[in-house]
Design a protein around this nucleic acid. Sequence first.
RNA 1: GGCCCGUUCGUCUAGGGGUUAGGACGUUAGAUUUUCAUUCUAGAAACAGGGGUUCGAUUCCCCUACGGGCUACCA
Length: 505
Amino acid sequence: MSDKKVRVRFAPSPTGGLHLGGVRTVLFNYLFAKKHHGDFVLRIEDTDQTRYVEGAEEYILDCLKWCGLTPDESPVAGGPYAPYRQSERKSMYRKYAEQLVGQGHAYYAFDTPEELDKNRKEIPNFQYGLAYRDGLRNSLSLSTHQVAELLDAGTPHVIRIKMPEDEKVSFNDLIRGHVSFETNQVDDKVLLKADGMPTYHLAVVVDDYLMKITHAFRGEEWLPSAPVHLLLWEYLGWKADMPQWAHLPLILKPDGHGKLSKRDGARLGFPVYAMNWFDAKTGELTPGFRELGFLPEAFLNLLATLGWNDGTDQEIFTLDELIEKFSLDRVSKAGAKFDFEKAKWFNAEWIKRSEAGSLKAEVKKVLEDKGVVVADEDYLLQVIDQIKDRCVLMPDFYQQSAYFFELPKEYDINAVKPKWTDAKTAFFNELVIGLDAVAWQAHDLEATFKALAEEKAIKVGELMLPFRIMLVGGKFGPHVFDIAQLLGKEETIKRIKTALTVFTA
RNA sequence: GGCCCGUUCGUCUAGGGGUUAGGACGUUAGAUUUUCAUUCUAGAAACAGGGGUUCGAUUCCCCUACGGGCUACCA
């Protein structure tokens, strides 16, 4: 097994938006594949036609693209093991299910869903298996003749695996170590549905085998069905090719307990999906990390450290670093509660560490979406350098930089008016004149400003805030003389004059 | 209920038979920033409980408790 080329797959069901945990599973798959110079496959598990959602597959592809986790093989990229949608592979599965029936490891079952519901309701701990299968309608309990008749009549039926009696199924999970199950406790899972589609259980085994998957990562919620899959690999005669399993810890709600769901996001005010997801049926929009203003690098970074660490104090990792350092044996076993505060911290760190140039396009979009005209991109770059340390999410760039591009929309008048004096009016009137002659550099501006203050016998501290409000409109932003320098002489003077009329009105 | 998995500061985690149990987010207090944020410094804050094993357990074993997952012709 170890000499085989590493091949992993992400196998989502196209039923809606892509959850945090889903992206983390993709990430771990991707990191593992790249680290071992293997292939990363995207396989769409659309075997449940009743749950199919229009646009979900495209959405998943878009998410992967945004994250930069491009599959080597996928429904759109194709590949040597196409097709990559299980619905298009439908015809492949039946023969394996029939093979299992022939071998005595599976059987036909004719019970209707209604009958089974009734049993579940009436019999405590009912499960279709050892204890009850003889009393139900299937090819184990019925005579060969009866079964043939039912089959000939086209009676709807499923194929179920026959769990063996008194056996222990165990395997070595890459994250959890030794895990074992008693077969008597596992029910006879459906392998092939009445509509001819395989269930996940059959499809995942058949496709992992056919696609030569070497390592299978999935959420911990799959652990209970692992024995079914193990047995299938064995019964189908493929045991030597079975991938190594790794069941990832779950991502939990920040408060209370349980798996994180999109409802928690709505309830607690943070995104759960990677990108906005619009449900055409309900008209409901579920917000995403991307639209909220997360950088994909930060998103990946925070996901990577949710359940994994490299053993050092390092917390900020680039994708390349993650590929280099990732290791399954450093993935923790316990579920992790999602912490949105820390998620934002990751984003702020990434913004701070990013070059203005790499932020430019996204910042420009943020500003233009708000109606701010960005005419000069070099100017924009300088603005970004001035303010990126104070932005946590990308939309913060609007609030933090709009005044660099247009007159303040409003002035924090309460911060200046109560203490305003005629002397200050005189100061700023003279400042306008004085400024006109200054070489336009922050430190020269500051010197001129302070000299004039001294001459007028006004404390500099009394003048700094009004000056800031004049240029910015509020009590925030970088050093005021840096702002003035960037704004330019003409604009600065204009803003002083404009604000003066407001302050003295 | 049954089965499976798990359990170190509020949260994410490091560590591992002998440590002042480390880091990060958040939080508190200071410093810097004539605004705010950043930054810096300091502080509070954890080994679920009970039995073993051992000279010595937070670390290894067992039990209990608690938490989570699964228990569909969904994935």
